[in-house]
Amino acid sequence: MKKLKYALFTGCTAKQSTPEQMMSTLAVARKLDIELIELTEASCCGASHLQDYDDFLSLVLNARNIAYAEKHGLTMVTICNTCQLNTAMTKHRLDRNPELKAKVNEKLAEVGLEYKGTSNIIHFLYAIIDDFGLDKIKKMVVRPLSEFNIAPFYGCHNIRPSELHDESHKQKENPYNPTSLDDLIIACGGMNVDYEEKNKCCGFHVELQAPHTAAVLTGTAIAGATDQNADMMVTPCPLCHLKLDTQTKSASEAIGREVSLPVLHMQQMVGLALGCSPAELGLKHHVTDVNFV
């Protein structure tokens, strides 16, 4: 197989509140011999909040990010569900609306850039599964996670709206019964835990304005995984991770029950199975201790 190469859009949390997500992404890429060219020029995707304020500006900024991936002639890989949503949504809208695309390009021309629509945009989870292949990962596992029940937490913005995500995935993901993360857990030798909240919302986006709603959603998700005997949760989204890892106190208070589980980034789980060290994967950066390694 030709060596896989992508343009990496890190997003903002990887550089701030989830350094372990960046570390583990790079560690897994090294193990799988995937080359990642970091888009250091990229701006924030707006996280669907700038979109609430100024739609056109958020399109221009996201189109600029994609234009840099296009300049490399590479598929853009994201490591955050919300980055994936906002970037792919921009692509979707511009590719279908020549008039809008022209308007955006008029602005980008001011800084010598052009959005062409030539780069696909996929989350690293699907790059690993679709492009690298689960079977190959399975063969590379040196430390199977066979003692662990692992609860997948998919995160809204990777699975809904499915019409959008189907455009970038090779294999369809059913938003009501997603399987990618379950398959990855199994490939890593773990036991995948089935529970009702696995495709539900963590509440991250309203944490400031509706803290109770956000906390109930987080608490219910951790409780759901716990009740199905999960030893840990795993998620491809750093925002879900922040919520599930750092907000257990408010979550417990909101649902009137003490809940707390170690939460791995999808990359950390793969990294562990492939034999990366806890230090390489940044496991010490979790608020809820990862106590099993």
């Binding site: 913005h157 709206p161 509706a210």
Partner: peptide, 10 residues
């Protein structure tokens, strides 16, 4: 207060 889960769109 919408959490942007896209359940409604789906």
């Amino acid at each position: 207060d919408c959490v942007k889960c896209f359940e409604c769109a789906e």
